[in-house]
Nucleic acid binder design. Structure first.
Lengths: 196, 196
DNA sequence: AACGGAAGTTGACATAGATCAACGTTTTTT
DNA sequence: AAAAAACGTTGATCTATGTCAACTTCCGTT
């Protein structure tokens, strides 16, 4: 069953135990949705109305600048939470798009109709969420530091170590834009390292 | 009283009301500490044992690389929370230093002796914390995007708009390193803009 | 007030990575 | 299977920003 992976995910990341009533609430609150390749979870200009848990698949979040180049902000695979927090919280139009890169199974937690609050009130969920936020904050600080102070080559190497899945599942030009470099530069970096 | 500013801060950022017992707990859990200019809240290699709420003052968080140059990761002023989350959570030695840039009044929430858990169990505090985490996550995503895709000049302009206080209270070379550029480049950017 | 150190400026030069353009390869669509 | 689109590579050149070094200005300490 599709909900099992979410329930397992929550349980694994908290001390508290999920009660049967909690599980019932989760099944009720989260809505299943399947996206085909290249379908959008969120389009630029729309308000992000869900937190999405990825059961299976891969997605990417990006913006397009005035010149028409895409900048990849985040990549997502199984067991990641996809959302534009700013748009979700402030209910403002998003500047990002989030697109399924592979066929993707999602469980959507809507902001509307109190689902979000009721789920957050589950102790195990709240614990998991605090840990998730901490890890996000640690990861984005790391990524920021790297983007400001490390070379493109070092950032690529670190990515291959930390998230090897990304490299296998997304094409090079997307990896490049996630690293904040051009596809040409990434191609050269890869040729360089290959020679070593 | 020094605790009032913290209590006011929490109350302002939550729906729930702080009960007298909550306030008593906060006064008990948070420890007051004054740092003089250039004193450290955290030194590189130490484990970060507190979340620090800044009542008054200004601090900065930085690393020193192999070449001896300092990279400023974060600046803090009144009503900001200072901490190295990674070190705090994982209880690993920090790669950062956090230093008082002005004389600073802090309220420290220790990780030890259950203070942290008890305070987090206060509903108003938990709500405030969720909002704080969301805002941090939004801010660091914004900063990451800017560092990867905007020019130094644009990043400086945005900083002057978003956090004008930083520019007034920290010297230029620290602002430069917060922006991920050298002091020479920042100096040139400022001269450029002045001419316009 | 005068000294010493920290902060900021300016110029000459170096370099990582971007841009542009052409071409090769792989994948998708028909 | 052919055509089209997406993806990746390579070379030439350009540009924003870094590096190094000399100099000036400001500020805190005595």
């Amino acid at each position: 069953m599709i909900y099992d992976s979410l329930i397992h995910y929550i349980q694994e990341r908290s001390q508290s135990t999920l009660m049967p009533s909690d599980i019932a609430l989760i099944r009720e609150a989260f809505v299943y949705k399947k996206l085909r390749k290249r379908q959008f979870f969120l389009q630029e200009g729309d308000i992000c109305k869900h937190f999405g848990f990825i059961v299976k698949g891969a997605m990417r979040q990006y913006t397009v600048d005035q010149k028409g180049s895409e900048h990849t902000i985040q990549l997502y695979i199984e067991n990641w939470w996809a959302s534009d927090r700013e748009s979700f919280w402030k209910e403002t139009p998003s500047i990002y798009a989030i697109e399924a890169w592979e066929e993707t199974d999602l469980l959507l937690l809507p902001k509307a109709n109190g689902s979000y609050e009721r789920v957050n009130a589950i102790p195990a969920f709240n614990e998991m969420r605090i840990k998730l936020d901490d890890n996000n904050s640690i990861a984005s600080q790391r990524r920021l530091r790297a983007s400001m102070f490390d070379t493109a080559e070092k950032r690529y190497e670190e990515l291959t170590l930390r998230y090897p899945e990304f490299i296998q599942r997304f094409p090079q030009h997307i990896i490049a834009s996630y690293l904040g470099i051009t596809k040409e530069t990434l191609s050269r970096i890869r040729n360089q390292s290959a020679k070593k």
